[in-house]
């Protein structure tokens, strides 16, 4: 009575086929990542060393290390964060905790989505016009970081809003009904319970910022500058631009060098992501609802 019919068999065959197809697509997705990582490790690995990380480039960037670029990237990212996180978190708090649902809010939301869609080269030109020329910061870490900040703001806002949304509405209602103001609610309940999510978003953001090239090319990153920056008004080298330079602009670079730079850059990004994932796991374990 319960034997499979011809129709059952046919459905099962189709089922297997689709399943296989989706699995293949998933594997296809992983393939480029795996290839990139393998090539980088195989070709770039040998040029990695302590000296590579902690010395300056020499002989027209065909030898030596990448210290100024590594330090420069850290500078750029940190200054960009200092600018974008307070603004982004404040804007997200306004949009998710205060703003009424009206045409102004909708326009702001639309603007944020569009800002996220602006190509990075356009941000770069905006940075040249606004920060380098208009505010007279010159080509400097400050101008480059602010350009990066403007570019990453929408993502900071969106990820912060997601984190805020994850705090149950019932907690807010409980506070409001006891006569807490919105700020008291935010400070005592919403922020303490969303800080993990906000941090995670921010760290993911950092890793993206570290890899950007276009926005910093015209605003503060230097082609070759074998000194460490002393203040935000200095220019600096950066890993991403350095990679572009040694790959395409300089003759007679040993084959392993660009791969080494790329490996350091990707290592930096991945380790930041790992920290972010670790954060999330630790803090999620602490959640109480």
């Amino acid at each position: 009575m319960f034997e499979a019919t011809e129709l059952n068999h046919r459905n099962q065959r189709t089922e297997k086929l689709w399943r296989l197809l989706f699995l293949m697509m998933t594997l296809l997705l992983i393939l480029p990542v795996a290839v990139i990582l393998t090539v980088l490790v195989v070709k770039g690995g040998p040029s990695l060393s302590i000296d590579f990380l902690f010395t300056e480039p020499t002989q027209g960037m065909t030898a030596g290390g990448i210290l100024p670029a590594l330090v420069g990237t850290v500078w750029l990212v940190v200054v960009a964060l200092i600018a974008s996180v307070p603004i982004g978190v404040a804007a997200a708090l306004y949009l998710s905790e205060y703003a009424p649902d009206n045409w102004l809010t909708r326009i702001i939301n639309l603007a944020i989505i569009n800002l996220a869609g602006v190509p990075s080269i356009v941000h770069a030109l905006f940075g040249v016009g606004a920060f380098v020329a208009f505010f007279r910061f010159g080509t400097s870490i400050l101008a480059a970081s602010l350009t990066l900040a403007v570019m990453t703001l929408p993502v900071v806002i969106v990820s912060t809003r997601e984190a805020l949304k994850a705090v149950p509405q019932a907690f807010r209602e409980a506070c409001w009904n006891m006569g807490a103001t919105r700020w008291q609610t935010i400070r005592k309940v919403v922020l303490p319970n969303s800080v993990s999510g906000i941090l995670t978003g921010v760290i993911l953001e950092v890793s993206r910022t570290a890899g950007e090239t276009a926005p910093i090319m015209f605003t503060g990153a230097a082609f070759f500058l074998p000194f460490l920056p002393q203040s935000v008004y200095d220019q600096t080298m950066a890993l991403s631009l350095h990679l572009f330079v040694v790959s395409t602009q300089v003759p007679d670079v040993p084959e392993g060098l660009p791969f080494g730079v790329a490996l350091v850059l990707i290592g930096l990004v991945l380790s930041m992501n790992a920290v972010s994932i670790g954060f999330r796991m630790v803090l999620r374990g602490k959640k109480k609802w």
Partner: peptide, 21 residues
């Protein structure tokens, strides 16, 4: 002042909603 209203008039909800404290 809304705060004063909420102070005088407390509310209990359908689902218990203690704060995560």
């Amino acid at each position: 002042e809304l705060i004063q209203v909420r102070k005088q008039v407390g509310m209990v909800f359908q689902r218990p909603n203690p704060l995560p404290l």
